[in-house]
Design a protein around this nucleic acid. Sequence first.
DNA 1: GCGGGATAATTAGTGCACGA
DNA 2: TCGTGCACTAATTATCCCGC
Length: 560
Amino acid sequence: MSNSDEQYSSNNHSLATSASGPTSTLVDTLSLASPEGRSSAKRTRDFIARQACENCRVKKTRCDEDYPCALCIKSGVECRYGKRGATKNEITLKMVMTTLRRIEAKVEKSPNKVTTSIGTKVDELNAASSATVLALPYESSTTANIRPIPSVFNRDGYSTPDSPSSVNQTPIAFSAYCILFWPAVQTLLPAAVSQVYSDYGERFPVIVETRRPALELDDSRQCDQCGHNNWLTQLNINTVKELCDAYFASFNLFTPIIDCKFFFQHTLGDAIHGDFGYSIGSCLVLTVMALGCSGRKSLTENGFVGQSRRLQNSQTNPLNSQDEIIPGLGFINETRRRIGFLLCDNSMQSCQLCLLMSTHGTQKANEWEEDMQSRLYWTAVTYEAIIAQELNLPLSKAQDLQDRVPLPKFVDFQLSTTFDPVTTAKEQESEAFYQYHFLSQNAHRIILSRVYNSIYYNTTTGNYPSTTIEEELYHQLENWREQLPIGIRFDNNSPVPPASSPANIIVVSWLRVRYFITKYHIGRPLLHKALHHPECITLDTILEAHLGYETLSTSQILIL
DNA sequence: GCGGGATAATTAGTGCACGA
DNA sequence: TCGTGCACTAATTATCCCGC
């Protein structure tokens, strides 16, 4: 029973005695007792409903809180109780709880916490066994001497306290491609690869990618004489809907940045009525359809849907020969064509308009809009953490806003039509599914950042972070996997089981991939150690490395 | 039936006593 | 000195009485 329920119960309980109880004053009692008083004095209130129904509220009449209430029965209208808004106290409490969770997560994320928490374990290990070849100078017998991660290795957005003991320590690059820069690896590289490295330096992947020629625009769809591209306006509405559905059944499951109801009621309608003109909405719909092509292809390949006749029709088939190689490329090209013009439209007046609108301040975002912004923020932060760490890129500082942005609640978009607002069981299930997956991704991001901060450094003398830290990180990753909600939990030792739904297989596969990639990241410093300081490697270490290699091979097989 | 405004319920803020 | 619990009061919000 919630607090509000308890209050509600106690309130109702009090009303049994309230007629002659606390709410009746002596004057009232006397007035009611005498005929003269009864006619002139105001009637005392029996009780006040904690929440009056919508009709009583509008008519300002007494509500007995029954369902339906007496007035609605008498009036012959539907009795409806709106959702009670959160009280200030509840809002404050919620804010405090959210802030506490944030602080808790930050403390958990701190490398100091990791090293300190495992300090006791280090003590136990050191006490139990005499010095081994793995024992490092800073692994003293007191937890107070457990060394924090030196500040020189702080990555933007993952700050750790400074430490005076950070001398002679060098970071190990976290990005997978940076293995190519390891001195021991460079001696093994073919001359051509070494040449690329010497030409472009450590940023060569980014430089090579940016110099890659752009995909050619497909001009085969230009239809009329003036060159205006109108093939989109000839698309069958059902084809459009089918591709959009495919998108929401695939990509939007693990990147839930678009609200399905809002999209179909507003965005899609506006794009179609505008003949897919040069607007952001059109770009959004075209990109959704492009991803829908990919999504539909994979759904078809996995037997969840059959190839529809509409998409087989050569006249309206958006999957032409070019799209067979890259599904949805035609739609993407159309998006590129439009976005180019739209970006060029960022004139001074556009900026002025945006600033004026933001300073006007009269348009307060509603709950759904705020929740969508929160979805966008957390999705962006999650992807940024993965991509920036993987490509060794600087972070945007967006993570600094974590304390200000609440986690998304996946608020349902209220349709403007006269639609029954009762949420179906399926929608509630879908909502829970999103929340579970979203929170799982976020929790994984924290573990990955912890790996990033805790073990990716060494010293010139061959000292690496204790293997106990690695063990702790493996343990935390396993905890994460085991605590996943049942619907999206996976077994790391067996192949992907047949999924009950596309949502299930996509989301589970996504989490599975993240799991194995993190294992790979935890194990990579050991590889660095083996290549650069083989004298520090023991038989146990070699066995560990072998196990890690097997894990990686298994993960590749499972992913494939 | 409408709606002004009285009233109850709730919340937020303040001060004080008490104990560690 | 600080944290905690309690009592009290002012402010705010929601309900609904009652005159029109």
